[in-house]
């Protein structure tokens, strides 16, 4: 690991307007829009969570999902342009390269999370204890690890041309069917079945856990760990076949 490389990777992402729009602006704007539409004063979901709080948690999940996914897919671009070949002529190991990308993916999700939290607290009047804030935002952040792995796996599997549609497609799938844009509480039963396969559904469950007495935190952690292991294996396999030549 090389800190200078990590810092440069973070700076590169912050320079990309596309990245800022999709990971910072989108969740924040959607939060304002959704709360304006559905977050009438005092409305609550059946589980007792106020609608404004629930929507904020969903947009935090969205922010925590989109940045790591976007970051990982850049691996495909760097392979396509030949930058990886250049890096192979330095002492940076391939493991350190992937670690840097993964860590970048997680760290770069922080600004979006903080922004969503700030809008929730300052604009939408979400009131949580300090412990709950930490549990919600920190929990969803850690729960994004499998998504960061997924981004890397896509980056390793796809090429420069396919990585964009694959990435956006997954983003849509997770957003719509993962209980992010359509709250799981409002979904019909058949849809809930599909949602429970998506990692984002469980990210969302982790984020809500500090607010619920009967949270299925253990199960959520188990599913997310399963995703992490699975994607890790796919990534490692792909990585080995890609480097053997």
């Amino acid at each position: 690991m090389n800190t200078r490389y990590l810092v440069l990777e973070l700076r590169r992402l912050l320079r990309s307007s596309r990245f800022l729009i999709f990971t910072l602006a989108m969740p924040a704007v959607l939060l304002l829009v959704f709360t304006g539409l559905y977050g009438g004063a005092g409305a609550t979901f059946p589980n007792g969570i106020p609608v404004s709080t629930g929507l904020m948690i969903n947009m935090a999940t969205y922010a925590a999902m989109t940045a790591p996914l976007f970051t990982g897919t850049r691996v495909a671009t760097e392979r396509g342009t030949g930058w990886q070949r250049q890096l192979r002529l330095t002492p940076l190991s391939s493991t350190a390269y992937l670690l840097t990308k993964g860590l970048t993916a997680l760290l770069i999700a922080v600004p979006g999370l903080v922004l969503v939290g700030a809008i929730g607290a300052l604009v939408e009047g979400v009131r949580l204890s300090a412990g709950q804030w930490l549990g919600v935002l920190g929990g969803v952040w850690l729960a994004a690890i499998p998504v960061a792995m997924l981004g890397l796996a896509i980056g390793l599997l796809a090429n420069q041309d396919t990585v964009q549609p694959v990435g956006s497609g997954l983003m849509m799938l997770f957003g719509l069917l993962g209980g992010v844009w359509v709250p799981a509480e409002a979904a019909p039963d058949w849809m809930l079945g599909i949602m429970r396969v998506m990692p984002t559904y469980w990210m969302n469950q982790v984020a809500k856990a500090p607010l619920l007495a009967d949270a299925a935190l253990g199960r959520a952690v188990l599913v997310l760990a399963g995703w992490t292991v699975l994607l890790g294996l796919v990534g490692a396999w792909r990585f080995r076949t890609a480097t053997a030549r």
Partner: peptide, 17 residues
């Protein structure tokens, strides 16, 4: 060990740095 340095034919640079 940095004994060899190379300029590759298609060693791309990063456009955004």
């Amino acid at each position: 060990s940095g004994t060899v340095g190379a300029m590759l034919q298609n060693g791309a640079l990063l456009a955004d740095v």
